[in-house]
């Protein structure tokens, strides 16, 4: 009798864990505005780390099936989130292209869990899957028409191209950590961030800086008028119950919050 494959293990109910990372506003009205739902693979497997997990899933060509599984897990786990926080979920661009019923699936799932459509943000992740884009555009339009926010992930790196910006016209540009890390003291990174911020203003979009790990970088992001920041400096990903600490009193956020660490997942 052969052992189950890693894919079989991943697709078992309950094998995935959802954690949430707060995203902070950097303007005058500071505080947590929404959280990103993140997935961790099973303990004791090579797929515990999200980067390996999703690379494996993409190599198996199972993005569509897996995205549904992840969204189901994130939305179910979000039940313990403080009211009023937006919830961001990651979806492969290829899933939106090929899974025509995905918008309905997501909206029904959210509705059943008491999450209103305007409280949802679909974070589009792209990894080089070539497609015409007709299904993708229709899916994005369907989500947007029903009040769901759209974010483009990994802006400035990877496959998040200008074409994709035009195709999905995101409300949020999520800037890859590669451009954020070390932006303090690096005029070239600052120039790129400033350029993205300008581009976002043209789109009437907001910018989220990912991977903020240093206070100096955070201050540089503020000076560049980046709208939101996310990263270990501010808060580690944690279970929904832990995020209750952000429930109402988040407007007085200071970088001292970085001293707060999430409990073990």
């Amino acid at each position: 009798m052969s052992s189950p494959s890693l894919l079989d293990v991943l697709l078992r109910p309950g094998s995935l864990q959802a954690v949430f990372q707060p995203i902070f506003a950097l303007g005058e009205d500071r505080g947590v505005r929404f959280v990103e739902g993140l997935i961790r693979g099973p303990f004791g497997t090579n797929a515990r780390e999200a980067s390996v997990l999703f690379e494996y899933v993409r190599r198996k060509g199972k993005e569509v099936e897996f995205d549904r599984l992840c969204v189901r897990q994130v939305v179910a786990s979000a039940a313990g989130l403080p009211a009023g926080l937006g919830l961001s979920v990651n979806i492969h661009a290829s899933t939106l292209e090929y899974d025509r019923s995905f918008p309905d699936f997501l909206l029904h799932l959210a509705e059943a869990s008491g999450i209103p459509a305007p409280g949802l943000i679909v974070e589009i992740v792209e990894h080089g899957q070539g497609f015409s884009g007709a299904g993708f555009s229709a899916a994005v339009r369907s989500l947007r028409d029903r009040g769901v926010g759209v974010a483009l992930d990994d802006v400035g790196c990877g496959q998040s191209s200008y074409r994709r910006m035009l195709d999905c016209q995101p409300q949020y540009f999520k800037v890859d950590r590669y451009l954020v890390h070390g932006c303090h003291g690096d005029p070239r990174r600052q120039a790129i961030l400033d350029s993205i911020a300008g581009l976002a203003r043209t789109f009437s979009s907001r910018v989220v800086a990912e991977g903020v790990e240093r206070t100096a970088d955070l201050e540089t992001l503020r000076q560049l008028e980046i709208d939101f920041a996310q990263g270990f400096l501010l808060a580690e990903p944690g279970p929904a119950s832990w995020l209750a600490v952000w429930s109402t009193d988040v407007s007085g956020y200071t970088p001292a919050i970085s001293a707060v660490a999430a409990p073990p997942e």
Binding site: S5, L6, N46, A47, E49, S51, V52, L53, E55, Y56, R59, K60
Partner: peptide, 17 residues
């Protein structure tokens, strides 16, 4: 030592480790 039993699993690991 890490171990992988499938090609895709091994390729995913090499991409990130």
């Amino acid at each position: 030592v890490d171990c992988a039993s499938e090609l895709e699993e091994a390729q995913a690991l090499v991409a990130h480790v």
